[in-house]
Design a protein around this nucleic acid. Structure first.
Lengths: 126, 126, 126, 126
DNA sequence: GTGGTCTAGACCACA
DNA sequence: GTGGTCTAGACCACA
């Protein structure tokens, strides 16, 4: 379910957070379901437990999962809506990104085409 | 023309690169024009000369400026088109970004609105 | 009478202790009354018997309950006054808490309002 | 400026966060001022750098400090007001605390006396 | 078994 | 010099 791209310059713990976010958004990780344990994921990914822990701590902080010490970590009830709200809050950055493309002379139609493709790709999965 | 946000978590040299890119895209830095000297920019921004140099080296590598030993750095003839081509190459990331918003359940119309605003903002300046 | 919030980051045995304390303070658990048996509570809450036992041991240590081998656990005769004395002993922490609010610039009247609400809420129940 | 109580059952990184909060609230750490470097604090407190880093990461997340990689960590411009807002948000817990004292039969006047003392102690320092 | 904290120490990019 | 990430591995409380 999780995997690490060791080539990526993205930090391992960030890759894990983004994947969890994606899995939750896609409904592959549902509210109340257990996350893999820190240790098991550490072994299966060949990553130090501390790194997994760091990712889980971050996900907990964002409200996507909650941890019950002694029991494990679980997907939060409202995880999916939290993800959506986070994205809504990022729309300002999307605006800035679009502005930079506009300033660089990239036609809006070309930008929109990429957006269309992204949305279509996701809808195809659903 | 250039300024540093010391509170930003972006590296100083990256802030400089992005500003140069923006100034070129906006036509405020035109082909053939001289860039501020490393030393003068270092003084006016209160930044270590090595950091300015690192930004200029990066801009040179990307083909936005060229350095003429003994004379200084100048904006490349095709700087504006290089910026545009870089953006075109980043469209795949835009697609992935849009896909992540789609997966999170953010309606396409909401995403498009942000894009519209970004494009409008830029056009207003032009 | 008892319930567990599985989403809480508080340990299960601590949740149980706090609830017992509250029930005793509120007079819902009276001196001499039997506590639910470890086994029955374990079943009804879906919690490991060791965890219930740990809570009961802690309550025994604090003098809120006593265990009668073969018969079960019972609320101590002076349980209510023990709870009160424990609270009195915690007043130093309340003072430190108030001091930290004062230092942060929270007006005393605002702090007092929260205290008032807390006292009023309890009195309403009585 | 910082110190660790090794007897305390509070985690070291939490002690550091609370002290930073207190120093900021008391005006001993002012906006823009540099925090001790991770390494120097690690040496002076005899604590592993990772633990200091963890505290700083948490303070950064809360908006009390910001970090400029390569330069150091600094107190945020609005650190003091962030501390105050955090306290305001904790008033609900104060209310619950007061309610538990009320339920235990601790007279309001006794509770208020502790609060008074806390506020007076802080004002004496100012 | 579970997560949480901590030490020890390496390596990186950046200023 | 600075902070950020990561490995390796220990110890703890809790279920």
């Amino acid at each position: 379910m999780f995997f690490i791209d060791s080539q990526s310059r993205k930090a391992v713990y960030e890759q894990l957070c983004e994947q969890a976010e994606r899995l939750i958004a896609a409904g592959l990780l549902k509210a109340g379901e257990p996350m893999p344990s820190v240790r098991s994921l550490s072994v299966s990914l060949g990553v130090n437990p501390n790194t997994i822990q760091k990712a889980y701590t971050e996900l907990d902080r964002r409200g996507l999962i909650y941890s019950s010490p002694g029991k494990g970590c679980f997907v939060s009830d409202n995880a999916a809506s939290v993800v959506r709200e986070e994205k809504i809050r990022q729309l300002g950055e999307v605006e800035a990104l679009a502005a930079s493309f506009a300033a660089a002379g990239v036609e809006k139609s070309i930008f929109m085409e990429a957006v269309d493709n992204g949305y279509r790709k996701t809808e195809a999965k659903a």
